[in-house]
Each structure stands twice: as C-alpha cells, then as structure tokens.
C-alpha cells in the first residue's frame, strides 16, 4: 500500500483514538499501540529490506515525521491528564476546616500565682529580692519582734491559729519574713525585699473571708527613708496593676509595726473617681497598708533606729486579684475549677 496513504490513515486513527483517552492507563495503552516496539508507527519501517533506497528514504522520512507528530500529540494529552488527575486528587483531599481542633493541653498557673509573679518581676526590676519564710512560725517573729507584745488584742487566740507548742503558730502575716531578713543580715546593710506567701487567720470561710490567704509584703531599709519614697514606689505598683491613669492616695492608719501608718488607696479604676458601686461612692479603693517601719521593730532586729529607717507595705493578693479581675468570691482561688482556666491562660495587654 502507498506509504503516504498508510501514514495518513494512522494519523487519522490516532486523532480519533486520542479523543477517547480518559486516564493515564488509556494513554499508555495508546502509546504502546502507536509508538511501542510493535506499535503501528514502528512497524511502518519493519519490512523496508525489499524497498529501493529511494523508497527507504521516503518511508523513513514519513514515518519519522509521523512519530514526531504522534509524540507531540500524546505528550500534550499526557500533560492535560496529569493536571486533571492532580486536581481530582486535591479535590478529593479537601477537608472541613471548621471541624474542631485537637486540643493541646497547656497548663495554667493559679490566678494568685500569676498575679504574684507579675508583682515580683516588677520589684525585681527595682532591685528587690524575693524571699520566702516558713508558714509555721515562732510567736517571737510573728508578733513579739513586730511590736505586738503579749496581750495585744491583734494576737488574740481568736485571730491566730496556735499549735500545741505555744511558741509556734501558723503565721498570721508575712511580716515575720521581714524580721528574719533583717536579723539574718549580719552586716546590717540596706535592704530591699518582697515576701509573698500564705497566711492564716481564724476566719470562717465565705465570699469575702478565707482562713487561708496570701500576702505580698515589701520592706526597704536604708537611711533617710520617707513617706514620699513609699508613695513613689506605690505609684509604680498601682499603675502597673490597675492602669497608668491611676492616682494614689495615703490615708492615715494604724499598724503596730509601722509609724506613721497609712492605707494605700488608688483612684477607682471603674469610675475613674466619680464614685460607683466598686468604690462605694468614694472614688477611691483601698488596696493595701504601709508605713514607716516602727523604731521598735528596727531596734529589735539590730538596726539602730537612730541611724536606719525604712518603709514596709503589704497587699492582700486575693484582694488585688478580686479587684483586678472582677472576682466576687474569694473561694474562687481555692476551688481550682478548671473551667475558668482558659480565661486566665493568656497574656494581658501592657
């Protein structure tokens, strides 16, 4: 048969068959059929022995052209099919991204610990050391050296948990840590410490009372320390915890271990000082107590009160946290309800 006619026939068949190709399997079958060892195009040149040289050349040329054309057609189809198949695969892999995530458990800190740490970091940055002391404490440190002599109403057995050993009690304040710090500083140099810790008093537990609570106390001992130094220090704490627009105020108060003693008030963060429920209409909220260290306390701890002076302050961690986060029941800190942890598992804007 005429080689040209044959070639044109093959070409027609190929263009017909290629339209039926659906996938890579079909394509490789088609490839084999036309371009394989026994493919129709290959076979065109299989029995050329009997042909004249000219004819051989002619057949060779035609079949080569045909081969090139077939390869080009098939590879373009191949590309199409590959793309199509990838798209199908990707489509089949589509997921519902709205389904719930795998929960990664990250532990949370107790609300109080979180707040205490914030305050600790603030004071460390001002050169204060963080010190702790024992919760089972000597009467001597919890009361006597703090200018609370025997018979003082505040050390009434109704307020303090005594153990069977009458010189030992569950500390009713963190102030004994200040005493321990001053006593143990044999060189009697200036001091800056804060002492956070658990404290205990004989209170029945209810929404606003807890027999166990947490104090954060601070002490600075140096020469010529004044109430103005205390106020500047308190300003920093107040603004850090309750916002930079807070104003502070001292109100005269009484503590046996400081003189003068003051209450530490901040302008109400809720109403800004106009008066509301939270500040009971006064525009101010009391957040702690402080004062100039009493001369008896300094002398008791080996610091000559004619030379040294200092200030001390104390906050109730629970009270601060209740105010800051709007918690109304002090027992919240001790029930450890895991359902509330998410609310606190985040960084607060500075």
């Amino acid at each position: 048969m005429d080689i040209e006619k044959k070639a044109s026939e093959i070409k027609d068949n190929l263009s017909l068959e290629i339209k039926k190709v659906k996938n890579m399997n079909d394509l490789s079958d088609l490839k084999a059929k036309y371009l394989g060892k026994k493919g129709v195009i290959t076979l065109l040149t299989s029995d050329m022995a009997s042909l004249s040289i000219e004819m051989k050349k002619e057949v060779g040329r035609i079949s080569n052209e045909l081969k090139k054309e077939a390869i080009s057609v098939i590879s373009s189809i191949e590309q199409e099919i590959k793309e199509k198949e990838l798209n199908e695969k990707l489509n089949s892999e589509k997921i519902d991204i709205t389904l719930p995530s795998t929960k990664i458990n990250v532990g949370s800190s107790n609300i109080l610990e979180g707040l205490i740490e914030e305050i600790e970091e603030l004071f460390i940055s001002m050169g204060y050391d963080v010190v702790e002391g024992p919760e089972v404490e000597k009467d001597l440190y919890n009361f006597e050296l703090l200018n609370l002599p025997k018979g003082h109403p505040a050390r009434d057995a109704q307020d303090t948990f005594y153990t069977f050993e009458d010189s030992l009690l569950l500390r009713s304040q963190t102030s004994p840590v200040q005493i321990r710090t001053m006593l143990s500083n044999k060189e009697k140099t200036s001091l800056r410490v804060i002492c956070p810790g658990k404290t205990y008093r004989r209170d029945d537990d209810d929404a606003t009372h807890s027999h166990q609570f947490t104090q954060i106390e601070g002490l600075l001992v140096d020469k010529n320390v004044s109430l103005a130094d205390l106020k500047g220090t308190f300003d920093i704490v107040a603004k850090k915890l309750f916002g930079s627009e807070r104003e502070t105020r001292f109100r005269p108060s009484f503590y046996p271990f400081t003189e003068p003693s003051v209450e530490l008030d901040i302008s109400c963060f809720n109403c800004g000082g106009k008066g509301c429920n939270i500040c009971k209409g006064t525009g101010w909220i009391t957040v702690g107590g402080a004062g100039i260290v009493h001369h008896n306390v300094l002398d008791n701890c080996g610091y000559d009160s004619n030379v040294w002076s200092g200030f001390a302050f104390g906050f109730g961690a629970e009270r601060l946290a209740m105010l800051k986060y709007g918690i109304t029941d002090i027992r919240t800190f001790y029930t450890n309800d895991l359902r509330i942890k998410e609310a606190f598992d985040r960084k607060e804007a500075e």
Binding site: I104, N105, V106, G107, S108, S109, N110, L112, E113, E135, F161, L170, K198, Y200, H211, Q212, F333, Y334, N336, L338, K341
Partner: peptide, 12 residues
C-alpha cells in the same frame, strides 16, 4: 509546659 494546671489548696 507539660500541660498540668497549678492548684492552690488549703494547708489545714
């Protein structure tokens, strides 16, 4: 960091 939640309970 190991996923445990800190508690604060009573000493007594």
């Amino acid at each position: 960091s190991l996923g445990l939640n800190e508690c604060r309970t009573y000493t007594l």
